[in-house]
């Protein structure tokens, strides 16, 4: 999805202090990073602040970037970790009504009564997507991030493993569990998508 060779050439120009090269990187990745931050927080102000902080951090650490890896992986790793750190710092604000996040960030329970629309309600696609976004934003942060990397950024399991620095098997298991949770939460809220 992202051109690794093109990125490397641009990063080398950044390291020479060329302002145009930094603008190119922003142009290429601002949408992806902003949307990742938005879906992680579901708040446009937080998404803007977090997204800007991610780029500021990346641009100040370019000398530490290992050219053996894809720049996009490094950027998404910093972005994902930054969002998860932010959510941890603001945990109370983001606790879901559906349950709690365990100490390992993976436990969850669903006890909401069925208050959603009836099963015969015909939902417009836009409404369905909004509900899906709502459900994703209520996933535990680790599941949220991995779901977005897989489906929103359309990254492969291997790329996600590189970004999150996890074994491939763990990535697969987490994505499967995250999707299962999405299905359970949709069912618990009677959201028919």
């Amino acid at each position: 999805m992202f051109d690794r060779h093109q990125d490397l050439k641009t990063i080398r120009r950044c390291k020479r202090g060329e302002e145009a090269a930094f603008k190119e990187i922003l142009e290429r990745y601002r949408g992806a990073i902003y949307n990742l931050c938005y879906r992680m927080t579901r708040n446009s102000e937080d998404a803007r602040d977090l997204g800007q902080e991610v780029f500021i951090k990346v641009f100040s650490l370019l000398d530490r970037f290992d050219e053996n890896y894809a720049f996009s992986s490094w950027l998404f790793r910093i972005g994902t970790n930054h969002c998860i750190d932010h959510l941890r710092r603001n945990r109370l604000r983001f606790l879901s009504l559906d349950g709690g996040v365990g100490p390992d960030g993976e436990e969850y329970e669903f006890q909401l009564p069925d208050t959603g629309p009836g099963p015969d309600t015909v939902l417009q696609r836009k409404e369905a997507l909004e509900r899906l976004e709502e459900v994703i934003s209520d996933l535990p942060p680790h599941y949220r991030a991995i779901t977005l990397l897989r489906h929103d950024q359309e990254l492969s399991y291997e790329e996600i493993a590189e970004i999150l620095q996890l074994p491939l098997g763990t990535v697969k298991a987490r994505i499967h569990r995250a999707r299962n949770q999405v299905q359970q939460m949709l069912a618990a809220r009677s959201y028919d998508i």
Binding site: Y34, S44, E133, H151
Partner: peptide
């Protein structure tokens, strides 16, 4: 999941 809309930066 693959067709979540992009939000404007």
């Amino acid at each position: 999941l693959d067709s979540l809309p992009d939000h404007e930066v």
